[in-house]
Simulated scan of single mutants.
Amino acid sequence: MTSEAPAARPEVEIVVLVSGSGTLLQALIDAAREPAYGVRIAAVGADRPCRGLERAEQAGITTFVCRPADYATRAEWDAALAERIRGAGPRFVVSAGFMRLLGDRVLSENLVINTHPALLPSFPGTHGVRDALVHGVKVTGTTCHVVDAGLDSGPIIEQRVVPVQDGDTEESLHERIKVQERAMLVDVVRRLAQEGLVVEGRRVRFGTS
């Protein structure tokens, strides 16, 4: 009598949003090539043509562009983006260097996570690395958080610390942060796909209850 191998766990499908070079996306593409990771990137969307879309296309992933300039209002753009995401049917959405604030329609229909190159709530916004360096902090790092309607203000999922070294420039510090940011995002996406996420106010934990 032979025992049957356990059925493989179905892959969790996600959508990734990008605006630039797509290095965070590439980390997820590389991780998703391993069957044990359990995640499939169903689509990659962008607000403009960018290198991130090229990375997705090279990996055989469906892509779409939803440009704000093509819509009369931000609400119309948000509704169109929500429709494109809905069409891919993701379990959740990853903002991976997506440089737009998401609107009510997208956020009400999806769990969206984002990474930021600073230890939130300190130094939100587009210049988190520079602001931390100017402030003279001894440690900074990277944060993965749930996206809400504010600017880098959603509940924190995970953080990783990066020491600031004497002589650091914005570029050298950012490069070390990016190493931790990519590894953190890959880990968070894996755990979120496997375990789910519970958000209770400002508190976040992996699990379903």
Rank of each mutant, 00 (worst) to 15 (best):
V12C: 15
E175K: 13
R182N: 07
V164Q: 06
G136K: 04
V179R: 08
F92S: 14
G38H: 12
V139Y: 13
L24R: 12
N114L: 00
P163E: 13
L53F: 09
E34S: 15
R100Q: 06
Q26I: 00
R9I: 12
F64Y: 07
A8V: 14
A193C: 11
G154W: 02
D104W: 14
E200V: 04
L25F: 06
D168T: 04
P6R: 02
V198N: 12
G103F: 11
T126W: 15
L17A: 05
R130F: 12
V12R: 15
G103A: 09
T23W: 11
G167P: 03
P121Q: 01
A43P: 00
V18D: 02
E158V: 02
C66S: 10
I113T: 02
R100I: 00
G103I: 03
D187W: 06
T126M: 15
A69H: 13
Q180L: 12
G136C: 02
G125M: 01
A59K: 11
P117T: 05
T169I: 01
V65L: 05
P90G: 05
E34V: 13
E34N: 12
A149S: 10
V162H: 03
G20N: 07
S108Y: 03
V94H: 08
D148S: 07
R48V: 04
R9W: 01
L107T: 04
R191E: 09
V146H: 04
A96T: 04
H135E: 10
Q159Y: 01
E195C: 03
P90V: 03
G89V: 00
E83V: 11
P117R: 08
L133F: 05
T23M: 08
E158A: 10
P121Y: 08
A7N: 06
V188A: 03
A96R: 06
I29E: 04
S153N: 10
P121C: 00
E76C: 03
P49N: 03
E13I: 00
L101W: 02
S153Y: 12
D30Y: 13
A8Q: 15
A8E: 15
E76T: 11
C66R: 02
I29R: 09
Q58R: 15
L28F: 01
R48Q: 10
E158I: 01
L133S: 04
V106K: 00
R100H: 05
T143P: 08
V186F: 03
A183N: 02
V39T: 01
G87W: 13
V16A: 11
L53V: 09
Q165S: 09
H127W: 11
T63P: 09
G87A: 14
A56C: 11
S95I: 08
G97K: 03
G207N: 12
P124I: 08
L107K: 01
A75V: 14
R9C: 11
V161T: 11
E175V: 09
Y37W: 13
F92T: 10
V134G: 05
F92D: 07
Q194K: 08
G52D: 06
E83Q: 12
E200C: 07
D152N: 00
D131Q: 06
G45A: 06
A88Y: 08
A79Y: 06
H127Y: 10
V15Q: 06
I157S: 00
Q194L: 09
G20L: 06
G22H: 08
T62Q: 13
S122D: 11
G60W: 11
K178P: 05
P90S: 01
T2W: 09
V199Y: 07
R182L: 02
Q194D: 13
H135L: 01
V129W: 04
E170K: 03
I156R: 08
